[in-house]
Design a protein around this nucleic acid. Structure first.
Lengths: 162, 162
DNA sequence: CATATTTTGGACAAAAGAGTCTGAAATCTG
DNA sequence: CAGATTTCAGACTCTTTTGTCCAAAATATG
């Protein structure tokens, strides 16, 4: 459904959003906490930087930070920036121009699913997901099963004020 | 969303279902009508044969046919046979065991989409799609834009009675 | 200014998906 | 039985995705 790149991008930005401070979070920190390959995650976050969803900063005390308030970044934005928006628009059978004028045999049913997907993705913000991730029993990774473990280890992440 | 193999399998079985006769339809015929690589489609249909959704027959007058009435083969069956059922069950963030006990930050929203997907896929049969494909302006391929063209060329496909 | 830290940008390798090809087995026709 | 047709089974290539690595640019610290 979603590419690995996209999943990593979503996980990482939730993590950054949950780190409420304005500091830049080093990618190495995110990668090790989330058990994602550092080099691969670097590429994903570069892409999000180029798309204007996150800001980056080099050097000591550098890292990445959200470019906008977490209430203004949606799941739709993240998916669109990494995997593109075809998932929200494309025909199930991959037929170009599938629509009311020239539908495919599954058009009306698939449209319903896509609409649901679009509406939910547009409504679901990083803020909402980060708050969920802050609650007990809601997890962001496979290894650290419980979020409270995850985010207690997050707090002393970077003592610096940027 | 769906793999190419899966899309081809769906298109091909709709095509077979729309060919109401009990004859075996040669894969070469399906491939050329649907503009799909013959050898690749062969592999996909072999898979559907092994999964018991279609029957095959070798030699002259051979080909493939639905193993069950088209009213009893659903989109869910086809997707499950080729891409597997993970699309209907898997967490958006790919976390194993994502559920009520250990949800991910997007769990409840994603569950809604997956349920919609599952319900619709289970309800949508080859029969329904084949009938749609028989109507004007409903198409199955990119090249042959209108189904009535497609299926007028289909009728004399194979004069043989199996 | 020298050094350590961190992103950037590219090259590169491994794995999976998509597509091609060939020969063997089964089956019909004459 | 001989030949033509069609699926079956496997090897093979090409492309995309995923993952790894390294040197260069930017920046903070002492």
């Amino acid at each position: 459904m979603l590419s690995k790149s996209c999943i990593y991008g979503i996980q990482a930005t939730i993590y950054v959003a949950a780190n409420a401070s304005q500091d830049f979070v080093p990618i190495s920190k995110i990668a090790s906490e989330l058990k994602i390959s550092f080099h691969f995650l670097t590429k994903v976050l570069q892409q999000l930087t180029q798309e204007g969803l996150v800001n980056s900063y080099r050097g000591p005390k550098g890292g990445v930070a959200l470019a906008k308030p977490s209430t203004e970044i949606t799941l739709y934005d993240l998916i669109g920036a990494i995997d593109g928006t075809t998932i929200f628009t494309e025909c199930m059978l991959g037929l170009p121009g599938c629509g009311i004028a020239e539908p495919c045999p599954a058009h009306e049913h698939w449209t319903k699913i896509r609409n649901e997907l679009t509406v939910i993705s547009r409504r679901l913000t990083l803020d909402t997901m980060a708050k969920k991730a802050g609650e007990l029993n809601v997890r962001l990774t496979d290894e650290f099963r419980y979020a409270h473990k995850l985010f207690s280890s997050l707090k002393p992440v970077n003592g610096a004020q940027a």
